[in-house]
Amino acid sequence: MTNYKEIKISSNWTGVGLYGGLILVLFMAPIIFAASQSQEFHFGMILAGLIYLGLVGLMIYQFMYVSSAIISGDKLVLKKQFRPAKSYAFHQIGYPTTFNYKSTKYITLEMTNDDHSTEKYLILNSRGIFAFENKDAEGVLKQLRSIKNHKS
């Protein structure tokens, strides 16, 4: 693993998906508002409002934690939106947990900082037809953890 200069393990489409989702959520607000003004009040409006609030919450969560992930030498470099990149040694990598939704794999990861506090990251891997990439951040992170364990 450390023979390569840089290996990107997060999807190249992370930013596109994140900002595309934001644009979609922003365009939905006036549509929902206009639809609620032109009709009589009913339960469907409450349901639509709750779904919209859930999507807004999901977008906030993603903007807080979605990261680009690059292996650079013997360090894992993680960069969240609007924050500086942080470098971690392999022994600081927590155990990745994942879930899949359609063609996207979401990998959550807790990293241990030098002061022994933890920081949460979300790495995305897209396996969509038009993504043209076959990245497996979960597998790579597990390999890096095993390298750490063999050296200890």
Rank of each mutant, 00 (worst) to 15 (best):
G21Q: 06
Q62T: 14
I46G: 06
G54I: 13
G54D: 13
I71N: 04
Q62P: 02
G21I: 01
L50F: 06
S38T: 14
L58G: 05
A34L: 13
Q39T: 13
A35T: 10
A35Q: 12
P30A: 10
Q37W: 13
S38Y: 07
A35G: 10
G73F: 01
M59Y: 01
I51G: 03
Y19Q: 04
G73S: 05
L50E: 09
H42L: 04
F63Q: 05
E40L: 12
I32L: 12
G54A: 07
S36C: 14
F41Q: 09
G20Q: 03
L24P: 03
M64K: 13
L50D: 06
Q37S: 15
L24G: 07
L24M: 08
V25N: 10
I46K: 00
I23R: 05
E40W: 07
S38R: 10
I32T: 13
I70M: 13
I46P: 00
Y19A: 09
L55A: 13
A35H: 06
L24S: 10
F43Y: 10
G49Q: 07
A35R: 10
A48H: 10
M59S: 03
L50P: 03
F27L: 12
S38H: 08
Q62S: 13
G54W: 15
F33T: 11
I51W: 05
M59H: 06
A29H: 03
E40S: 11
G20S: 12
V66D: 09
G54M: 09
F63D: 02
L50Q: 08
I60E: 00
G21Y: 00
L58W: 05
I70Y: 14
Y52Q: 00
A48I: 13
Q39N: 11
P30Q: 07
Y65T: 15
Y65R: 08
G20E: 03
Q37N: 10
F33S: 09
Y52I: 08
M45T: 09
M28F: 07
S36F: 07
L47S: 07
L58Y: 08
S38M: 11
L47K: 04
Y19F: 15
S67M: 14
I51V: 15
S72D: 14
A48Q: 11
V25E: 06
L47N: 05
I31W: 03
Y65C: 06
I31E: 04
F63G: 04
L26R: 01
L55Y: 00
I32P: 06
I51P: 03
M59Q: 12
V56F: 04
I31D: 05
L53A: 11
A69R: 04
Y19P: 02
L22R: 04
A34P: 00
I51Y: 07
S67L: 11
L55G: 00
L22N: 03
Y61D: 12
F33K: 06
I46M: 01
G57H: 01
A69G: 00
Y61N: 11
G57P: 05
S72F: 07
G73L: 02
L26K: 02
G49H: 04
